[in-house]
Amino acid sequence: MLKFLTRTRHHGKMDITDILSWLWLTLGTAVIAIPIAWAMLSSLKTEAEVNSFPPSLIPQSTVNTQVEGYDKDLSVWQWTKTDGETKQVALVRRIGIKATVVDMDKPEKTFQVPISEITQLKDVHFQWQNYTDPLERFDFFTYIKNTVFVTVVATILTLLLNSMAAFALSKYKFRGKNAIFMLILSTLMLPLSVIMVPAFIVIVGLNLADNLWGVIFATVATPTGVFMLRQYMLTIPDDLIEAARVDAASEFRIYWRIVLPLCAPALAVLAIFSVIWRWNDFLWPLIVLSSPENYTLQIGLNAFQGQFSVEWHYILAMTVIALLPVTIVFLVLQKYITEGVAGSGVK
């Protein structure tokens, strides 16, 4: 590992530039990782611990034990005597700087020790309930279901519609083709934020307000997708399509049986992007959806954190749920994603 870290382009001593480079990378990695890791760790803490300050690093919980003669469980503490000897005791009550404790082996006898001599024992403990509770007690299950629905349907439609348009724009000759292509490309420059008001009015006009289909339809035609697929289809030889025509395939069949399978690599990249886009979408669903049973995860999470702003243990758990699919996709397909972004300048 050290050898790997210290390897330089000069195959010799590290010079100052190398040191600075590695410093930058290490620092950058820390800056990126720490807040995320912190949120993940915190999402596994109990409510009490999430709200305690200063915070503990690892999710823990207090160790409790049952002691004969006491109704409630008592918390276990470590007692460090003045002579350095240590012993585990159960805390009965605390008064001022004195604590009444009991020896767990001899529960009949209680005795008093100074608070400064005892520390509470804690165990590593993952509070998985933070994840299950919101699914059961709040609407998060519905949110996730809605998001999966939007993501899957929108991605399938994105692939179909954009590949069809790309097919037309790369393999046919018809009047106005270039104009249409330019028109589609120009929408690349037109952000949603500029047209969100009238776009919503269109949604209302189509009777799709507060409807998941309203979220889907507005997002499936993407100039990025058309452009990417068109570039790819241009590399498919025209001969192949003509061979299929000679082979009595209809144009639709050529699209379905020849062009689509041959575009599989490009479709895969677009599918990855589409899944990430739709999973993460915020502003547009925020505008379209108004009733909680239609919320997507992002919208639902945002609403939840506005409403229950102190329930950080739930908020963080759901945040992790929201970032998990994207993270898994990225871990598995990072090469395609980074290369796709670098290649086409889309995100």
Partner: peptide, 12 residues
């Protein structure tokens, strides 16, 4: 029926 210079076989 036609035989193309590039053969135009369906690669998939």
């Amino acid at each position: 029926a036609m035989v193309f210079q590039s053969y135009a076989l369906y690669p998939h």
